[in-house]
């Protein structure tokens, strides 16, 4: 794969891809239960223990192993992020293509609807969805997908509109190519690159939003482990047990950073606009 090779030759791509791979590994281990301890098992004797050989990242107020909880938390965050971005990207892409292809009426209707959704601050819209559906994993997925969908619609519609006026689409029309062929092979195929970049950045943003919702108590519900909840719980214990705050804080930042770096690198690789100017 030339893309992977290019990614590892790109400095921030190398770091980003490595971070994301490590997180994926941790998430997978968290999911199949391959953790050093049971993330939910409470242990009265081993409460608030600092990091040690037995508890690598210490324990929390209930004596639960922080490292194990972190792994399942990452698993949970990644699951929600991937699912929500998958939903947002597929629905948003279809809507964007429809808006661009039909222009006029459908474009007006769809884009005004997206304007309505975009008129809400993201976290507020997500909160509203949670208020309606009640907190939980699937609600988080839907809330994040709902918030990000209009952005995908815009990201797809813009290039699709300009591609539609390119000469190769004109050429296809002179051959009498079908709408389906033109939309999939001439439009969609050429939007894959910006879409890939957007998906990566959306994943970073989804991690952030998921953590934010959990932090506010509107996301994953305790006792299930979640990075946002762990961080929120650490607030009153921060001076006594700083590792309770530091570990999830670094975990959240690292994940977001990984996807952001990856997205930046992909943008450089997939959109090779040479930037040679100096001042």
């Amino acid at each position: 794969m030339s893309l992977l090779k290019a990614l590892f030759r790109h400095p921030s791509g190398r770091i980003g891809a490595t971070i994301v791979l490590v997180y994926l590994l941790l998430a997978a281990m968290g999911w199949i239960g391959l953790t050093p301890h049971d993330p939910l098992a409470q242990n009265r004797i081993a409460r608030l223990q600092p990091p040690s050989a037995r508890y690598w990242l210490g324990t929390d107020l209930f004596g639960r192993d922080v490292a194990s909880r972190l792994m399942t938390g990452i698993g949970q965050s990644f699951l929600i992020a991937f699912l929500s971005v998958a939903v947002a990207a597929s629905v948003g892409t279809v809507l964007g293509l429809v808006a661009a292809w039909f222009e006029r009426f459908w474009d007006g209707i769809l884009m005004r609807s997206m304007d309505i959704l975009l008129a809400f601050p993201a976290i507020l819209l997500a909160m509203l969805v949670v208020a309606v559906l009640g907190p939980g994993t699937w609600t988080s997925v839907l809330a994040i997908a709902f918030v990000y969908m209009p952005i995908f619609t815009r990201v797809v519609r813009g290039p699709a509109l300009s591609l539609k006026n390119r000469e190769f689409v004109d050429a296809a029309r002179t051959f009498g190519s079908s709408t389906g062929y033109i939309v999939t092979r001439h439009l969609l195929l050429n939007i894959v690159a910006p879409l890939t970049v957007q998906v990566t950045l959306a994943l970073a943003w989804a991690l952030l939003t998921e953590a934010g919702l959990s932090f506010l108590g509107l996301g994953t519900q305790p006792p299930a482990a979640s990075l946002g909840v762990m961080l929120s719980d650490s607030r009153n214990l921060m001076e006594m047990a700083p590792w309770l705050m530091i570990c999830p804080a670094i975990a959240i930042m690292g994940g977001i950073l990984g996807f952001n770096l990856l997205g930046d690198a992909l943008r450089d690789i997939l959109d090779p606009k040479t930037r040679v100017a100096r001042a």
Binding site: S12, A204, L208, A211, G212, F215, L231, S234, R235, M238, E239, P242, M245, A249, I252, M253, I256, L257, N260, L261, D264
Partner: peptide, 17 residues
């Protein structure tokens, strides 16, 4: 890049800490 990848609640907590 780090600034953009740091959620406000993480940054806020760090400041408070």
């Amino acid at each position: 890049m780090i600034g953009q990848s740091t959620p406000s609640f993480v940054f806020g907590l760090v400041i408070i800490y």
